[in-house]
Amino acid sequence: MRKDNKLVRVIYIISRLGYRFTQLFILSAIFFEFFTLNGEIGNFTTSAHNSKGYPIKARIQLNIPDTLIIYKSNFSSSAGVISKTDYKKYNKDFNKIKKDNRLDKTFQINNFAIYKDGFNDVSKEIDNVKIQDQDSEINIVINPKDVFFKSILMLKSYLALALLLFIAYQCMHLFKQLNKNFVFDKQLNRRIQNIGFSLILFQAVKMIVSIISMQYLSRIDYHHYIPSIDNSDFRFMNLQIEVEYNLETLFLGLCLVVLAKLLGYGYNLQNENELTI
């Protein structure tokens, strides 16, 4: 049955352009990866390259002290860094250092500035600005020397591109078929099912790769220290490597698989009714 559906035709054109653009993007990524030394050609550059590293998911945790004292004694080897916390019972040593006049002290005190409309400072209009949640998910780029570790990170990076190409291909042919004949059949059902399974498989592989990555790298600590002062090491941030998964994508994949089975059941039921009639 042929049906003139402008919306389907528009979506088909968009999906076809998307598929060609995805092909071009993947070819350019492969070219930069394997045929350039550092992922740069003139003004063109790529963020993911074997010389720069590949992204890995981590949770950033900040240690933001209210006040930080860098101290050093002119009469002894006493030196270091101490911070003030939100818990008064743990600030005994901090207050002791703060009141000790024999120490040469440098204070680092947190402050905030709030702006609106560009550079208009409105800090005096708001009190008590404080970070409520000091951890968040970020992507960090690492470049391991271990060949296997680097290979699986490269696999994960290009697996996302492969998934994008596969879904673009399935969508292009799905809407192409609907544009020719606006009826549902087993081929359309198979394409929807393929998209669902590809999303589920992608999440499974992504999770396995992240679990393997955690065997090579579990945490990254960032330290603040003063080279001229012994024992002045202060950890202000750490990055905890996490298992990578996306429940929304996994749920979407499962929904598409179920939808494909339901549509397939409806298609078979319709054929049985037509044969009965």
Rank of each mutant, 00 (worst) to 15 (best):
K3W: 09
D4P: 06
V8A: 09
R9P: 03
V10H: 06
Y12D: 11
Y19A: 11
F21N: 12
Q23F: 08
L24C: 10
L24Q: 11
A29N: 12
I30F: 15
F31R: 00
F32E: 01
F35V: 09
L37D: 14
G39K: 01
E40G: 05
G42C: 05
F44N: 08
T45L: 04
S47Q: 14
A48S: 15
H49F: 02
N50H: 10
K52P: 07
Q61S: 04
L62P: 00
N63S: 04
L68D: 15
S77P: 00
A79R: 03
A79F: 08
A79L: 08
I82R: 12
I82N: 10
Y87S: 13
K89P: 00
K89V: 13
K92N: 14
K92F: 04
D93M: 03
K96T: 11
K96R: 13
K96V: 01
K98H: 07
R102F: 13
R102K: 14
L103W: 12
L103P: 01
T106Q: 10
F107N: 12
Q108K: 08
Q108G: 15
N111I: 09
Y115W: 10
Y115V: 03
Y115H: 05
D117H: 02
G118N: 06
S123Q: 08
E125M: 05
D127Y: 06
N128T: 03
N128A: 07
N128E: 13
K130R: 13
K130M: 04
I131N: 12
E137M: 00
E137T: 09
N139K: 11
V141M: 12
P144M: 03
D146P: 05
K156S: 11
S157Q: 15
L159F: 13
L159H: 11
A160F: 12
A160T: 07
L163F: 02
L165D: 08
Q170F: 07
Q170P: 00
M172N: 15
H173N: 14
L174M: 12
K176D: 12
K176C: 07
K176V: 03
Q177E: 13
L178R: 02
K180Y: 08
K186G: 11
I192P: 05
Q193V: 04
N194A: 13
I195F: 03
L201G: 04
L201Q: 07
Q203L: 07
A204W: 08
A204R: 05
V205A: 13
I208D: 05
I211T: 02
I212L: 09
M214V: 00
Y216M: 00
S218H: 00
S218Q: 10
R219N: 06
R219T: 04
I220W: 00
I220F: 00
D221S: 14
H223W: 15
Y225K: 13
P227W: 08
F234L: 09
L239R: 06
Q240G: 00
Q240M: 07
V243L: 11
Y245P: 08
L247M: 11
T249Y: 13
L250T: 15
L250C: 09
L252G: 09
G253S: 03
L254T: 11
L254Y: 11
L254I: 15
L254Q: 11
C255S: 13
C255K: 09
V257D: 10
V257H: 06
V258C: 02
K261C: 07
L262P: 06
G264C: 06
N268D: 08
N268T: 02
L269C: 09
Q270P: 05
Q270D: 13
E272A: 05
T276I: 15
